[in-house]
């Protein structure tokens, strides 16, 4: 039996960790990673829901989330690379300041 409740709790913890990381970290790479964690937490919640209801919808959704996450990482990393080239830093606040100036 798939431990659905535990999986949901795990998903909540993962999501919270992702959010906290997103808020506190200023480095672009960490920010991207935290977004990735949040996405996967949501995916886990979908799978768990699917198990609870005994229907495949949730797993299908996760199949959609996977490529979206992959695409996001690909584009995000490419952007991060470009930004680093131009700004010599990945500190988001510093980048925001540069933009303002």
């Amino acid at each position: 039996m798939f431990p659905a409740n535990e999986a949901l709790i795990l998903s909540a913890i993962l999501f919270s960790l992702g959010v906290i990381a997103f808020i506190v970290r200023r480095n672009l790479l960490y920010t991207l990673m935290s977004v990735e964690i949040m996405l996967n937490a949501a995916g886990l919640a979908f799978v768990a829901g699917s198990a609870i209801h005994g229907q495949p919808d949730g797993q299908v959704f996760f199949m959609f989330i996977l490529p979206v996450a992959a695409a996001e990482v690909a584009i995000g990393l490419a952007l991060a690379l470009l930004i680093f080239k131009r700004c010599k830093t990945l500190d988001l606040w510093a980048i925001a300041r540069i933009k303002e100036e």
């Binding site: 959010v19 997103f22 970290r25 920010t31 988001l92």
Partner: peptide
């Protein structure tokens, strides 16, 4: 609108 993503996230949270 200060351009700081993490602040936006906090507000969203």
């Amino acid at each position: 609108q200060n351009g700081r993503l993490s602040r936006y996230a906090l507000v969203m949270l």
